[in-house]
Amino acid sequence: MKHTFAVLVENSPGVLSKVAGLFSRRGFNIESLVVSETEDSSTSRMTIVVEGDNRVLEQVGKQLNKQVDVIKVNDITNEETVERQLCLIRVSADQSTRQEVLQITEVFRCRVVDIGRKSLIVEATGDEAKMQAIIRSLWPFGIMELVRTGKVAMVRGERNKGK
């Protein structure tokens, strides 16, 4: 099963390699990992999606917690969250198919960010399910290139600082 960990870490050199190294040497599978500075420039937030059974996930949390640079680990899988990924897709679209492709991008509320004679670049944001739906819909036209970010996530509702 896939789990999402929100990990607050010190914004110090080497912290990414320490966390990534921890995953590889303990045999944990990273599905995706996104890291960036937070509102406080001395900390970074990692959003890590991990695949594994309950035993593995418990170990992931505990081993992360042991790292000196890790301040807080939250498994937010079962919390109500807003999740987003961003995806850029270069899709083949000539005179005959362009209209149809544009319609699909509209349905998914994607943006077309570049247009060539034979292709378009589509920018899509959303959660995992939406990404898959877009990719599936554009697939028949010929996806020439695709890049995706990992998932970033935030828990809904008021932020409870003491928790």
């Binding site: 050199p13 080497g14 390699s17 190294g21 040497r25 042991k66 640079d69």
Partner: peptide, 16 residues
């Protein structure tokens, strides 16, 4: 060396 010992230390520091 800080990279080399990362998996076998509780923590390692490079003084900058």
């Amino acid at each position: 060396i800080t990279g080399i010992v990362t998996p076998v230390t509780k923590h390692s520091y490079l003084l900058e």
